[in-house]
Design a protein around this nucleic acid. Sequence first.
DNA 1: TCTGGGGTCCTAGGACCC
DNA 2: TCTGGGGTCCTAGGACCC
Length: 425
Amino acid sequence: MFALVDCNNFYASCERTFRPELRLQPVVVLSNNDGCIIARSEEAKAIGIKMGAPEFKCRDLLKKHDVSVFSSNYALYGDMSSRVMRLLGKLAPEIEVYSIDEAFLDMSSFTRFDLKDYARHIRQTIRQHTGIPVCVGIAPTKTLAKIANRLAKKNPEYQGVCVLKTHEEIYSALERTTVEDIWGIGRQWSKLLQAKRIATAADLATASAPWVRRHLHIVGARIQAELQGTSCLEMEMVRPAKQSICTSRSFGRSVTTLAELQQAVATFAGKCAVKLRKENALASMLTVFIATNPFDESANRYWGTRTAALPYPTHDSIKILSAAETILAGIFQDGKIYKKAGVIVSAMVPKASYSTTLSLFPEEEPDEPNQRDTTLMQAMDAINQRYGRGTLHLASENTESWKPTQDHLSPSRTTNWNDILEVKV
DNA sequence: TCTGGGGTCCTAGGACCC
DNA sequence: TCTGGGGTCCTAGGACCC
């Protein structure tokens, strides 16, 4: 048996933890640059605020109902998430952290427990120690656990807990779940299935297996088997090594000059390098992209991107920044109004497996990796770890010209000493 | 005026090998 | 008229997730 523990309206719940007066009040959290609604409390959902809606389109609604609006505060959410995960890790022998607000627990050894009681215990523990409300779904496969969790969320009378164990319980759950609510079935496949008159999870479970295999490929066949109670997806306790890392942002205002874009691209490249070092990996390829406003209908739209191989795999900020600047110069077009840029590092190799001096003609590679670079990066990371992110950075990293809008940012009360002082009891 | 960010996996088809 | 069989690697594009 698998349990799926999922935090309710996670970002909104994080904000509310430190603002108890907002309990039972509508709360929303905005995406980066204060662009879209990405989290809503139950009260905000009830008002009719849609997930993913642009903030400027629901401003009237937000104002009319006196909704509390927050910019996203990932320092806070990340820290709250690790608190939740640490607790969950103690509540089951194996845990798979699936996303910032969800985890699978291996319940196969709980045969002598009443699973419903134990799920309630999980819920209470997380609530008591973090203030975050969660729902728990338990079933014989991960896909069914997802369905159980959704039923726990949607039906208040379940009190946040749903266990699917018998054939009857499972089949009834499948009948009450539409195909688009199945984990792994997105918009395109929903459309296809509905055209085939496969409307519910029960329909999909009993649909023709060859048809599913042909049109939904191996992924769909796996979903079908999981719905039928055959577990195909195992617990993944160790997160697989990342294959690529991307840092991109929309700008708080329009940017037109190469110099301004350079500041942004340097900043993103620097963040990628830090993430690479945290991942204990080196990158061999580097991509830079710059874009104008995609919603602008005028003919002056532009989406420029280019990928280049790095001379050798590296996680050195200086090397990555300088390579990014070269790529940027090659794709920059004058006269465009830029709204977004990003940097992607890929073709990654684990640092441990990489031995230096791979070059066939080392005498022609004056730029080869050396110990000094590594030591320098270690020193930089150590200083930033101790004194806070961004304390020490390369001069070209600069947020001045493009800084995203963050007009409703809450204090980072669990990660920043200065912000703790603002807590009023 | 104003519209997020970061990932993975799978398939098909082309180019190439013997 | 007749024209083999069995592979790998790479990339682009499409689907999905949170």
